[in-house]
Structure formats: structure tokens, C-alpha cells
Amino acid sequence: MNMPLIAQAVRWVRALLLIGLPLAPLHALADTVTVATAATLRYAMDELSARFEKATGHTVRAVYGASGQFYSQIRQGAPFDVFMAADLEFPQKLVDDRVVPGPVIQYAEGRLVLLLPKGRSGADASTLLKADSTLGDLKAAMADGRLSRFAIANPQLAPYGLRAQETLEKAGLWQVIQPKLVLGENISQAAQFVSTGAAQGGLVALSLALAPQLAQATHYVLIDRNQHRPLQQGMVLVRSTEASRAFVAFVQTAQGKAVLRQFGYE
């Protein structure tokens, strides 16, 4: 066997591999960023992820739920890279307790809407609230039987649920509507209760009401922002990696903000 020829062939193979390495640096460096995502972002996140992946080569794994649940899970060491909450309080608590380094970055402000099922023909139509119903109509609807189930997210876990409670309290409806409440584990489940007819109405996020998946079965009335505390939403790095830092930066770009505006965020 000719050893010099073999050695020369090995050198050529190594040289060819080295030449080929710069051809695909993006794939070599690409990583996955796992984002604990408030349920209000369920549809906006699809678009954000797609644009981020196209721009950077990194991929996004979004896990949806209530901000309060994610707060507890992160404190217990859940392997998330970024926490996108539906408020500023939960991520700030993680920073204050030195669970994550911070800072908390406000990425959007959300809006609350009264979500109602679209009208149906036949006997069911008489049980529905009108398309232009307001908070003032809810009490009458409860009295005449049109409103027997009303959906909000669990106020103890979901910021949108807490703001819904504040809204109902300010309207003088909280005490009378409590027996009718159907609590979702998060705001997305509360919206699903309305869209499937499990509830005759609900207070949910505008970002969900604008999604085509819900717009086909529901309509909404925007709630005056003065009815509750602001829905300022914040994000924080849980684990600092190239991919997680790139994602947080991307959300703050003009492209990221455009996606959020598309889904009703301010």
C-alpha cells in the first residue's frame, strides 16, 4: 500500500471540507430558542416566528400558557430561554427575586374586548347578545336568561383575566356575574369557550379576536382602556444564548413591531 498517496488523499479531503465550511455558516450556527409565551400571543407568534426564522436561521419553539403559570415554572427551573408575559409584573418579580438577570423589556400594550358569538338562525338566535352589546347590556342579558355563561381567564394566573375582573368591578357587574363565570386556564381558552358556544360572551384579548380562526365565529366590541389598568406586556431573557438574544432583539425591530400592530397591539 502506498502510504504517501493515502496521506496526500487525506490532506485533499480535509482541504475540500474546509473549503465547504463557509458555504453554510447559518446552518452551522442555527439554534432553537424556547419561548414561554402568554396565550394572548398565540396567533401573533406564528408570524413573528416565521419572520425571525427567515431573518436569522434560528428556530422558535413557542410554549403557550398563562403568565402566572410560567412565572412559577421558571422559578422551579423550567428550561425556557425567553419569557414573553402578558404583563410587566410577573417577569419583574423574577428579576427582583434574582431568578433571572433582567432587564424586563416592554414589547407591547394589549387591549381587552367583549367577545361575542356571531348570530345564528333559528331558536339559538334569541339566546345571543347583539353584535353591538356593551358592558351595560350584560346585566339585562343575565336577568332575561340570554347570558348564563360568561368567559374570562383565571384572574389569579392570567393578567388579562385580572384586567377582566377589574373591568367588571368598575362596571358594577362583578358580584352578579360571578355565578355565571367560566374560567379559562389562560386567555386563549377563554376565547375558545366563546367561539365554540360554551359561553355566550367573554372578555378576552383583542389580539385573539383579530385572528382569522376566531373572526369566523365571533365578533367583538373594544373595551375602553380606562375600565382597567394598562395591559403593558413585558419580556425577559431567562437563558442568554445567541438565539435567545437575537429573538428579543428581533421583537423590538420595525419588522417585529409591525407584526404586533397587525394583531392589535400598541
Results as ranks from 00 to 15, higher is better:
residue 3 M to G: 05
residue 5 L to F: 12
residue 9 A to V: 07
residue 13 V to E: 11
residue 15 A to C: 08
residue 21 L to W: 15
residue 25 P to V: 06
residue 27 H to D: 14
residue 29 L to M: 10
residue 35 V to P: 14
residue 52 F to P: 14
residue 57 G to F: 12
residue 61 R to Y: 14
residue 68 G to R: 01
residue 78 A to I: 11
residue 87 D to M: 11
residue 88 L to P: 11
residue 89 E to C: 01
residue 92 Q to V: 09
residue 93 K to V: 07
residue 102 G to W: 05
residue 106 Q to K: 07
residue 107 Y to V: 07
residue 114 L to G: 00
residue 118 K to W: 05
residue 121 S to V: 12
residue 134 T to V: 14
residue 136 G to I: 09
residue 146 R to V: 00
residue 150 F to M: 01
residue 150 F to L: 08
residue 151 A to C: 05
residue 152 I to E: 00
residue 156 Q to S: 12
residue 174 W to L: 09
residue 178 Q to C: 10
residue 183 L to K: 00
residue 187 I to F: 04
residue 189 Q to I: 10
residue 190 A to M: 03
residue 190 A to G: 03
residue 192 Q to L: 03
residue 199 A to F: 06
residue 199 A to Q: 01
residue 200 Q to N: 01
residue 201 G to T: 06
residue 201 G to N: 08
residue 204 V to W: 02
residue 205 A to I: 04
residue 205 A to F: 04
residue 207 S to L: 05
residue 210 L to A: 00
residue 213 Q to E: 15
residue 215 A to P: 05
residue 218 T to N: 00
residue 219 H to S: 07
residue 219 H to N: 09
residue 223 I to N: 00
residue 230 P to A: 02
residue 230 P to D: 07
residue 231 L to K: 03
residue 235 M to C: 04
residue 244 S to G: 08
residue 246 A to N: 15
residue 247 F to H: 05
residue 255 Q to M: 12
residue 257 K to Q: 11
residue 266 E to P: 14
